[in-house]
Computed example of a mutant assay.
Amino acid sequence: MILHELITYDTLRLIWWALIGVLLVGFAVTDGFDLGSGILLPFVARTDLERRVVINSVGPVWEGNQVWLILGGGAIFAAWPQLYAVSFSGFYLAMFVILAALILRPVAFKFRSKREEPQWRSRWDAALFFSGIVPALIFGVALGNVLQGVPFRLTDSMQIRYDGSFLELLNPFALLAGAVSVAMLVMHGAAWLVLKTEGPVADRARRWGMLAALATMALYSVAGLLLWAFIDGYRITSAVNATGPSNPLLKTAEVHAGAWFANYAAHPWTMGAPAAGFIGATGALLALGARRGGLALLAASLSIAGIILSVGASMFPFILPSSIDPRASLTVWDSSSSHLTLFIMLVTTCIFMPIILAYTTWVYHVLWGKVDQNAIRDHSGHAY
């Protein structure tokens, strides 16, 4: 028996669908509080010292947190090449704006402290706010568009034709999804600041975090109701060949009202994802009210995981539906890499993922504790 045949092709496809979800959640949970802290910077910090406290709370860890974004992009490229090709071509301008914002963030970290002039530092503070809110918003907008279907088609030779534009991505439902993303990351960032800071900064972060938790639950509820009432899902109408070739055009599919909620009826355990979104946000609200930063951070992480995984649970087996040619929609069963490629990647992941998790755990252990304002004031500690 060939080694990679130890795991069947359909099982590997399912494993990698789940792993992509894990990587997306990993990025949102780790880098999410960095983005949320940047969004909160103008609202929780009023003096230069307070702003430096906020910046130094995320300064030592934000670079390591972005490893999850690199892993996610690399995994999509290798495991789901058609998904990578369609999404990165169709969402090209949106991805460019996200990358520009993420590139601006380290520049702001490094250059802000080079001069002491208030105007100089206020400009870089604005850049940190921009680099926090833009990715948070656009990532949510992207998910909102995925749920509605993306205007692409495939030719018989598998060439991609994208018929949309950047402005079409900014439709009402997608902007609502973006608002959900911003609210949940602000909640997450506030929990982090309550955990890592003291005094007025922590108090203001707690208040903003409680508002963000309420907004997360409200906006997520509205998005779910609109998705159920007004937005059609997709379903496969032909036989499913889970071990067949990666050619989306071999199937037939159609737009069908209520299809995104069919999985919840067929598999009630999937209701755990949206339930986790609400339970986590409620837990974060209560923990922030009790000034329990660590518990609030865990609860906010649960909420983020639940909200993101609810998208995957609703859409399965679709990964990227096409709004103009449902037959071209990409699914778990017809858009992956080869059997051998998925197996090699899985073996590599089993080796290196524990190393990344161990290293990340060690870094957070070393950097545990609250930011010391006196060390910042005396220039005896902290980087920024």
Results as ranks from 00 to 15, higher is better:
Leu3Val: 12
Glu5Pro: 04
Leu6Met: 12
Asp10Ile: 01
Arg13Trp: 05
Arg13Pro: 09
Ala18Gln: 12
Gly26Gln: 03
Thr30Glu: 03
Gly32His: 04
Gly36Asp: 05
Ile39Phe: 04
Leu40Gly: 15
Pro42Tyr: 08
Arg52Gln: 06
Ile55Ser: 14
Glu63Gln: 02
Gln66Ser: 05
Val67Cys: 00
Ala75His: 06
Ala78Pro: 06
Gln82Met: 15
Leu83Met: 15
Ser87Asp: 07
Ser87Cys: 06
Ser89Lys: 10
Gly90Leu: 03
Phe91Asn: 10
Ala94Val: 07
Leu102Arg: 05
Ile103Phe: 11
Leu104Thr: 13
Phe109Gln: 10
Trp120Asn: 11
Arg123Ala: 12
Asp125Ser: 14
Asp125His: 04
Ser131Asp: 07
Ser131Tyr: 03
Ser131Val: 03
Ala136His: 02
Val141Ala: 12
Ala142Tyr: 04
Val146Thr: 10
Val150Arg: 02
Phe152Arg: 10
Ser157Ile: 11
Gln159Cys: 07
Arg161Phe: 11
Gly164Arg: 00
Gly164Ser: 01
Leu169Lys: 00
Pro172Cys: 07
Ala179Asp: 15
Ser181His: 15
Ser181Asn: 13
Ala190Asn: 10
Trp192Glu: 07
Leu193Ser: 11
Leu193Val: 09
Leu195Ile: 08
Pro200Trp: 00
Leu214Cys: 13
Leu214Met: 13
Ala215Ile: 09
Ala218His: 04
Ser221Glu: 07
Val222Arg: 13
Ala223Cys: 06
Leu225Ile: 13
Ala229Pro: 04
Gly233Lys: 01
Val240Lys: 12
Asn241Ile: 02
Thr243Lys: 09
Gly244Thr: 07
Pro245Trp: 06
Leu249Asp: 13
Leu249Trp: 04
Glu254Pro: 11
Val255Glu: 14
Phe261Ser: 05
Phe261Met: 02
Ala262Asp: 11
Asn263Ser: 10
Ala265Gly: 11
Pro268Asp: 01
Ala273Phe: 00
Pro274Ile: 02
Gly280Met: 00
Thr282Ile: 11
Ala284Thr: 13
Ala284Trp: 02
Ala290Met: 04
Ala290Arg: 14
Arg291His: 15
Leu298His: 10
Ser303Tyr: 01
Gly306Phe: 00
Ile319Gly: 08
Leu320Lys: 14
Asp325Glu: 15
Thr331Leu: 11
Ser337Val: 12
Thr341Met: 09
Phe343Ala: 13
Ile356Asn: 02
Tyr359Pro: 01
Tyr359Arg: 02
Trp368Ser: 15
Trp368Lys: 15
Lys370Glu: 03
Asp372His: 03
Ile376Met: 05
Ala383Tyr: 12
